[in-house]
């Protein structure tokens, strides 16, 4: 190969490499880093990117040079130089990529091993995924449940994921980590949030018609605020039965589907809970028994105008005291507007 060709190749390679590097650096590629795991992932990302830019620049240089330099003139019917191979080159382009991918494999393995471990004792949260909602149970906090994920900053968390119908996948892009929730299995995911803020929890495994809307929030708070939130929730649960029931109602987002005037909810996806007394006459059960059964076994009796399978069957996992509080809240005659509504 002539020296001129090598110089041209290097020049084109540097130009292409610089252009691609500019795209890599100037465009804001990665989401905000809000966890230690995301930082490690991003390191592997940039490590791989550097290698890929080099390879791409090399290929582009040879390709561009060849297309411009070796293009045959229209009247040129001759053949090229019959080069059949070059053992040295062939060994080189077998060995060098092998070394590069080994490097990527090692860096990845180290990052993976670190991301699989929590530094310090993690707090445990059980994540239940169902079509098309998330619920988070704080195992260290008397099984307090919430539909938003609230985390104290800089505290390692171990999520155990369960799915009650089909496969879902938990992802907060700012945390980086992702894990499928699989029916019949328990999977785990470790996260150490490093930034205070509100992030989106999305489902990234196609789970049916509402897949795109299976979203929740992850709220990372200062330790003190988090403690305060926890104690408020606890207090509500341990407070008067009505207060506890109201908290359970809110924590499980019952109002997301049901109208219930005492809680101020107006959704019409499921039956109107202001009319529970009338509905109980359908199966002819006592009100309290009817409400309890409708929560834990929603398809035992389905109100006319609504379809079975609409309500998740996961509320049988509510702790007994919370269930009791919820039933009492829903059946309590203390809701003043209830009788008025029933009259309609």
């Amino acid at each position: 190969m002539r020296r001129g060709a090598i110089l041209s190749l290097v020049a084109i390679g540097l130009i292409v490499g610089a252009a691609v590097t500019a795209v890599a650096v100037l465009v804001d590629w990665l989401p905000e880093q809000a966890s230690k795991e995301r930082e490690r992932i991003d390191f592997v990302f940039w490590f791989t990117t550097a290698i890929c830019i080099a390879i791409f620049a090399l290929v582009a240089a040879v390709m561009l040079y060849a297309v411009v330099k070796f293009r045959a003139r229209p009247d040129d019917d001759s053949d090229g130089r019959p080069i059949h191979g070059h053992t040295g080159l062939e060994i080189a382009w077998t060995a060098v990529p092998a070394v590069l991918v080994t490097g990527i494999a090692i860096v990845s393995t180290v990052a993976l091993a670190q991301n699989d471990r929590s530094s310090g004792t993690p707090m445990s949260i059980e994540v239940t995924a169902r079509q098309f909602a998330w619920s988070f149970k704080y195992l260290d906090e008397q099984d307090l449940t919430s539909t938003t994920l609230r985390l104290p900053v800089d505290q390692p968390v171990k999520l155990t994921l369960k799915a009650s119908d089909v496969i879902h996948s938990f992802w907060v892009k700012e945390f980086g980590q992702k894990q499928d929730a699989v029916p019949g299995m328990v999977t785990t995911l470790r996260i150490t949030p490093t930034k205070v803020g509100r992030f989106s929890v999305i489902c990234t495994e196609l789970c049916g018609l509402g897949h795109a809307f299976m979203r929740s929030k992850a709220v990372v708070m200062e330790r003190a605020q988090y403690e305060q939130w926890i104690s408020e929730q606890r207090q509500a649960l341990n407070g008067s039965p009505g207060q506890a029931g109201k908290a359970v109602f809110a924590q499980n987002s019952c109002g997301g589907c049901h109208t219930f005037t005492p809680a101020g909810s107006k959704s019409e996806v499921g039956p109107n809970l202001d009319r529970l007394a009338a509905q109980a006459k359908g199966p002819g059960q006592p009100l309290e028994q009817f409400v309890r059964e409708s929560i834990v076994k929603p398809d035992a009796y389905v109100e006319r105008g609504f379809s079975a399978d609409l309500m998740p069957e996961t509320y049988d996992q509510l702790p007994k005291d919370q269930l009791d509080a919820l039933v009492q809240y829903l059946t309590s005659p203390a809701s003043p507007k209830k009788s008025k509504k029933e009259g309609r």
Partner: peptide, 14 residues
């Protein structure tokens, strides 16, 4: 190659 590297794949899969 990005997708083959497990940590990156965990972030960008799906």
């Amino acid at each position: 190659i990005y997708l083959g590297a497990v940590p990156i794949d965990i972030a960008v899969s799906d």
